[in-house]
Amino acid sequence: MHLDKSRGPASCKRLPQSEVERQSALFLDTALSGALESMPLPVVVLNTCRQVVYSNSGFGDFVQRISSGSILGRRPGEVLGCVNSGIGPGGCGTSEFCGYCGAVRAILDSLRGRTGVQECHIQYKGENREDSLDVLTFCSPLTFKNEEFVQFMLIDVSADKRLKTMERLFFHDLMNTASGVYSLITHLERQKLTDESRRYVEMLRSSSCQLIGEIADYRSFMAMESNELIPNPLLLNSGQMLEDILAVYRNHVLADEKTIVVDQKGGAFTFEADPILFKRVLGNMVKNALEATRKGGKIKVETALKGKQAIFAVYSSSYILPSVGCHIFKRFFSTKGAGRGLGTYSMKVLIERYMGGKVRFSSSKKDGTCFTVQIPAGDLCQ
């Protein structure tokens, strides 16, 4: 038993190994151990001194890559090879660094009778190398055979953490490169060019704007899916918003030999929305309509202010079958092949979750298809 005073959030006290083995025997061949063994996640049971008295095979397989030897009687950080578990006088939970450990906090919450859920970053020393581990820990109080324990379960989220970090770096570098290309094109526009060359530069500028928009769109989509997206609503002008969208799509390959008609009923008006997110929604509506329109055809974009509601509608002559229409806003559903199906889904989520509006569509053989977005215009708008 450790008698030294803890420098961390938890007690140094440990039960003798003989007592740990007695507690461990309580779980042998019981319905509870059978249930824990069948769980697909690593699970251990800790006593009130935070020592392992039971572990399922999933936990044994998980820690085998980090350390070998007996798990029984050791604390989670010691089993996982945490570099701080050997600093404190009583091992895991007793160093000054352990106060920042999510796993320790979750365990202590459960010892106080509450369910604890915490994320934890562990720097560990394995048998051959030093590495890091990110886990999500779930702890809950457990009373078994009139004794108090803690059920400790973890999920390895290291791959997700690394993927998110790589995505942030990738998008940052990719956006810098695309912005650099755009700057070069802007510089070219200031030079003396022939009419033909200037036309090509304008096409390059349009493509560059589209590329930057696609990168920003995908980055915001990833943030939206992980509930990390934070909208930044500003006062916008409907006429300018349309002009910005159409400047991209009038020169788009999808608009070749097609006409875009604009009808601003009652004239331009102001409304509140995040400009980047709303451009993504309206751009997707225009793009989808162009994709569905044959050469020689036209699409129509309408805007209107009705009371305190801003209305944006995009019409095309195409017809959506009912068997397709019932799936139109589902994630990854597309009639255009694998790897598609985020456009209409993200439109609905962005408008309804982040802008407090509504997205709907109608389609008939006679009138074609219309996608409509309706959002609150805001008190300052007119």
Rank of each mutant, 00 (worst) to 15 (best):
H2Q: 10
D4I: 04
S6I: 03
P9D: 09
S11W: 04
L15C: 01
E19M: 11
V20H: 09
E21H: 05
R22Y: 08
R22D: 00
R22A: 05
Q23D: 12
Q23T: 10
L26D: 00
L28S: 14
D29V: 07
T30D: 03
L32A: 01
L32Q: 03
S33I: 06
G34Y: 02
Q51K: 12
V52P: 11
V53C: 01
S55E: 06
S57R: 13
G58I: 08
F59D: 09
G69V: 14
S70P: 14
I71Y: 12
R74I: 00
G77Q: 03
V83K: 06
N84R: 05
G88P: 08
G88S: 00
P89I: 01
T94W: 04
E96M: 14
Y100H: 12
Y100Q: 13
A103N: 06
V104S: 11
V104A: 06
A106C: 01
A106D: 00
L108W: 01
S110G: 00
R112Y: 08
R114I: 02
R114C: 01
V117I: 15
H121I: 13
Q123Y: 09
N128P: 05
D131R: 13
L133E: 09
L133Q: 08
D134A: 15
F138I: 15
L142D: 03
F144H: 02
F144Y: 14
Q151P: 06
F152Q: 03
D156P: 06
D156H: 09
D156E: 06
S158Y: 11
K161G: 07
R162K: 14
R162H: 05
L163K: 15
L163N: 12
L163I: 14
L169V: 06
F170V: 00
F171Q: 06
D173T: 11
L174D: 04
L174K: 10
L174S: 13
T177I: 14
G180Y: 00
L184I: 15
H187I: 11
L193W: 02
L193G: 07
L193F: 03
E196L: 12
V201Y: 05
S206L: 02
S206E: 04
C209N: 13
I212N: 08
I215K: 01
I215R: 05
I215H: 11
S220L: 00
E225P: 03
S226L: 13
N227A: 15
E228P: 03
P231T: 00
N237L: 09
Q240H: 10
Y249V: 01
H252M: 06
V253K: 13
D256P: 08
K258S: 08
T259G: 05
V262E: 14
Q264I: 05
G266S: 04
A273R: 02
D274S: 07
L277C: 03
K279V: 05
L282S: 00
L282N: 01
G283H: 11
T293W: 09
T293S: 15
K295C: 14
G297P: 12
G297K: 00
I299Y: 07
V301N: 06
A304Y: 04
L305S: 07
G307D: 02
A313G: 07
V314P: 12
Y319L: 09
L321N: 13
H327A: 03
G337Q: 01
T344L: 15
S346Q: 13
G356H: 08
G356C: 10
K358Y: 01
C370V: 15
C370H: 02
F371I: 15
I375T: 05
Q382L: 13
